[in-house]
Design a protein around this nucleic acid. Structure first.
Lengths: 342, 342
DNA sequence: AAAATAAGTGGAACCGGTACACTTTTATGT
DNA sequence: ACATAAAAGTGTACCGGTTCCACTTATTTT
């Protein structure tokens, strides 16, 4: 285990001052003779010298790190978002510190404290909905905060990137209505989440347009974690006049819901037509292939990273940005015309 | 946007020296009167003071950051690994810098350079197989390197955590043989990857034990990325005497293979029995439910983090550690007894 | 009561880079 | 050839923490 060489070691070995080495390290920061530059570079290579980021960051806040605070990376949606965010960031020479909250606001506040101490330049997050004071503090500190997929209404000054939840749920519901379904159920995120509320609103709008009766029994909120989705599905199926179609608008709970339907022996789409908010390759492999709402994760990632670095890159803006990208309804085989049993 | 308070601001506001504030910050580093401690804490709270990690890291290498270098987080296996690694790390107060290589050794070398500059204390990685010199340098620098899921044979001094690839493939193949299959195909990772080789070796062992003929046509290597898996599947099905059973031992390509089989209208398990290395919830939702090899991701993550921090935590060891955890064969419905058509 | 010990605090060097102000060398113009 | 400007290089303060050491005051010990 070698001792790590410092800039002074390099300077001495190359017979120049540290200032010159620093200039070689940061081209454009000052003149260096070609010959000297070559010599210094050689020495650095020989010594295996690598400048320490920590030392560099001490002088200026680092526009070199970004915090990515997600609920749960084992959820494919977040996993793919993470993948794209990391790629986008790397393309800009930025590193990503990944943290997870497990939807726990206590954990969230701890993670945020760490991010503050690291003085990250930006944070991309799926907020739990609490810790309002900390989010505000972050912004006051000049950190670019971007909420992705969800928002917190009481923090209107934070940038938000998400799909158009209202329109996505509306069009999915409308498709079912167009297939003749009159009892359409929906399982969405917690009522406290912006995502959940917007999707329910879109759902209601579609019902209204189609002239269908709204039945609160058909609307279920399920927590993001645990088996809440499965329970919601069971509950929906056991009501007096069960739905003939179902929109699963809680991404995190899609597999839970499907598992429950499968165990209950429900025939899709014979007994129940289904549309899910989930765009993983396996949805196409199912029997039947699932009709899905596809979220353009690439766009979400690109916009998020851009916003999270916008202030840093001088493009400071007055107004908070709200970016809504359109989701795509992909029709496959899990939606059927309704059986007119009565 | 406030100016960030420093330790000196706190010291002044509290009417003490910076040394005292530092002691309050690091309990155990020296005596502080109870009254003083309280006053300093109050001031810190009022000023919204947070010590800068960068400054702290300048004095000692940071045992506070870990690099996680994965091929691709959109692959559910890696995603869940990332999730668990992050949780394990957080439980120890460690942060995780997430990077992806897309299996590209050029990108890998760039990411590694960044990790060196950051002086991370440990790296958990799925190596591409190249960049040998850099990996060696990392170790010389005292960074704890842990390869997870794969290894590089020419770097025997690096710790490795993986499932028992040989045994997993052996038992999967043996199960198929026990169901009467005599033509068993396998799609595995690149021949250059340790994972691919070990799994093939286990496969051969099972065939030998069962007294079955080995046919090189039944063994296919598929790259981790792209549509290689699908092509391998098509190729397998079009040989003169096609297999009646298939082990898909390349985790990254499982969905590609299944998609191709599905499009080809192959009946599973009627025409083809299938076992896949993939432990996502959806494998149970398929029709038929897939027989899988389940990788104990929790264990992989826990051991990886432990090893990646072992030197840091003083538990330096002479010998490189090789940890193999057992994978579990979960029998479901995608394996049938062979049809004796001849 | 004097001496030894412990507790609480402050001063300043240090970590490894960056950048400003400054000096020395080389090139340019007439 | 000489003045002058541009290029190359140096010294050093600084970023924001940590820590060693010296110093003062309070508490014990004999």
């Amino acid at each position: 285990m070698q001792k790590q060489p410092t800039i002074r070691d390099v300077a001495q070995a190359a017979g120049v001052s540290v200032a010159v080495v620093s200039r070689v390290l940061n081209p454009g920061s000052g003149p260096v003779a070609e010959a000297t530059r070559g010599r210094v570079n050689d020495v650095m290579k020989n010594l295996g010298y690598h400048p320490r980021t920590a030392a560099r960051e001490l002088k200026f806040g680092p526009p070199t790190t970004l915090g990515l605070l997600l609920a749960d990376v084992s959820n494919p949606f977040f996993a793919r978002l993470a993948d794209r965010v990391v790629q986008e960031a790397h393309a800009r020479g930025i590193q990503v510190l990944l943290m997870t909250t497990q939807e726990d606001d206590q954990l969230e506040s701890e993670r945020l404290a760490t991010l503050i101490e690291r003085r990250v330049s930006g944070i991309i997050a799926t907020p739990t909905g609490n810790n309002l004071a900390i989010w505000k503090q972050l912004q006051d500190l000049g950190t670019d905060v971007v909420f992705v997929d969800r928002s917190i209404p009481s923090l209107p000054e934070v940038d938000v990137v998400s799909i158009d939840n209202f329109e996505s749920a509306r069009s999915a519901t409308a498709l079912l209505a167009a297939h003749g379904h009159r009892r359409i159920g929906i399982i969405s995120g917690p009522a406290a989440s912006s995502t959940g509320r917007d999707r329910i609103a879109g759902y209601r709008q579609a019902l209204e347009t189609a002239g269908l009766e709204q039945d609160e029994l058909l609307i279920r909120h399920a927590a993001f974690r645990g088996s809440a989705g499965g329970d919601a599905a069971s509950a929906l199926l056991s009501i007096e006049e069960p739905p003939t179609a179902l929109v699963v608008a809680n991404t995190a709970q899609v597999t839970e819901v499907l598992r429950r339907l499968s165990h209950a022996g429900i025939d899709i789409p014979g007994t129940l037509s289904v549309i899910v908010f989930e765009d993983s390759p396996w949805t196409e492999l199912m029997t039947p292939a699932l009709t899905i709402v596809r979220q353009p994760i690439d766009l979400l990632a690109r916009h998020s990273v851009q916003l999270a670095l916008s202030n840093t890159q001088g493009k400071a803006s007055g107004e908070p940005k709200i970016i809504r990208v359109a989701a795509e309804l992909v029709e496959r085989s899990s939606v059927a015309r309704v059986h007119f049993t009565k």
